[in-house]
Computed example of a mutant assay.
Amino acid sequence: MSSGHGTIERRRSRRSADVRPVPGPSAKGPGPGRRRGKRLSRLLSSSLVQGALILVALVWITPLAGLLISSLRSEGDNASDGWWTALGDPSQLSLDNYGALLKDSGIAEAFGNTVLISVPTTALVVAIAALAGYAFAWLEFPGRDAIFLVVVGLLVVPVQIGLLPVAKLFGAVGLFGTVAGVVLFHVAYGLPFAIFLLRNYFAEIPREMLEAARMDGGSEWRIFSRLVLPLGRPAIASLAIFQFLWVWNDMLVALLFADSGSQPLTVALQSQMRQFGSNIGVLAPGAFLSLVVPLIVFFAFQRHFVQGVMAGSVK
């Protein structure tokens, strides 16, 4: 009896092993309707994003295109009708305004002053901030944290507070109304943000990498120049773009600290605004020239700028 009972049990176990479960409705993948819904939502989301970006680009490009076309038309054409009429009559466009602008000694001198102010300011801010940022991040010295807190506190000090005191100081030392005075003011007020930015970026460099360089006999200057600076190139490029654009487009500081011989292009164009109707042939090409230079700088360093902005967002 026992052997017969065991045989029956073995047959039942074989039958149960041969039976496979039939997948129910929940085991099936998403139906055709659900897949179409996902594709539609994905398409709509991408289309909405692309449409929004195109709209923003059109809003930004339209005034720029109007300024460019106005700079290529004569004063009579600009006074008679809108700039869009030149799209149907390209014969209105010429480079005469730019030729006259380059012959204008005041505008040409102002453009040169803008370069003399923007380039040294950007170079000094980047160089000093890089050295200070490395010191605050990786060097031990007395009062390091307290000094860095002072630097961070200077970030909230508005530029307008220091205009009159610095103007009196520059007048006493003979820097008022000079290019050097404008450069020094921009350097002083650009350093707190620059030091704060580069210090935080340099602090993310792995400590083991710096310790290995020190164990190999590298000096602090060699570590800074050969290791830290190449790794910090994206942040340095972003800082250089920000600083250059800020100084190039500045008018408040230059309006107060520069005289007629050291005024930048923004101040020179602002002085022409009093007679806008008769000076449109100078204002339009001058404004476009003032606009196109920062655009060239931005697109030239666009790759480094994006890397610097996105730095630290992905671990």
Score class of each variant (00 low, 15 high):
residue 2 S to A: 09
residue 9 E to F: 00
residue 10 R to F: 04
residue 13 S to T: 03
residue 15 R to I: 05
residue 21 P to C: 04
residue 23 P to R: 03
residue 26 S to I: 08
residue 32 P to Q: 04
residue 42 R to M: 14
residue 44 L to H: 09
residue 46 S to Q: 11
residue 51 G to L: 14
residue 52 A to G: 07
residue 53 L to W: 13
residue 55 L to F: 14
residue 55 L to N: 01
residue 59 V to M: 15
residue 69 I to H: 03
residue 87 L to H: 02
residue 102 L to P: 02
residue 102 L to E: 03
residue 105 S to L: 09
residue 106 G to D: 11
residue 109 E to A: 14
residue 110 A to T: 03
residue 110 A to E: 02
residue 125 V to R: 03
residue 131 L to W: 08
residue 132 A to Y: 06
residue 132 A to Q: 10
residue 141 F to G: 12
residue 147 I to A: 13
residue 148 F to Y: 15
residue 150 V to E: 03
residue 152 V to T: 05
residue 156 V to P: 02
residue 159 V to D: 08
residue 160 Q to A: 09
residue 173 V to Y: 13
residue 173 V to I: 15
residue 176 F to Q: 07
residue 177 G to V: 01
residue 178 T to I: 08
residue 179 V to Q: 03
residue 182 V to N: 08
residue 197 L to W: 13
residue 202 F to M: 11
residue 206 P to N: 00
residue 223 I to C: 05
residue 225 S to G: 09
residue 228 V to H: 05
residue 229 L to G: 01
residue 230 P to K: 01
residue 230 P to N: 05
residue 246 W to Q: 01
residue 247 V to W: 00
residue 254 A to G: 08
residue 258 A to T: 01
residue 266 T to D: 10
residue 277 G to E: 10
residue 277 G to A: 12
residue 283 L to H: 14
residue 284 A to V: 09
residue 292 V to C: 12
residue 304 H to I: 00
residue 307 Q to R: 14
residue 310 M to V: 14
residue 310 M to C: 12
residue 313 S to N: 11
residue 315 K to G: 14
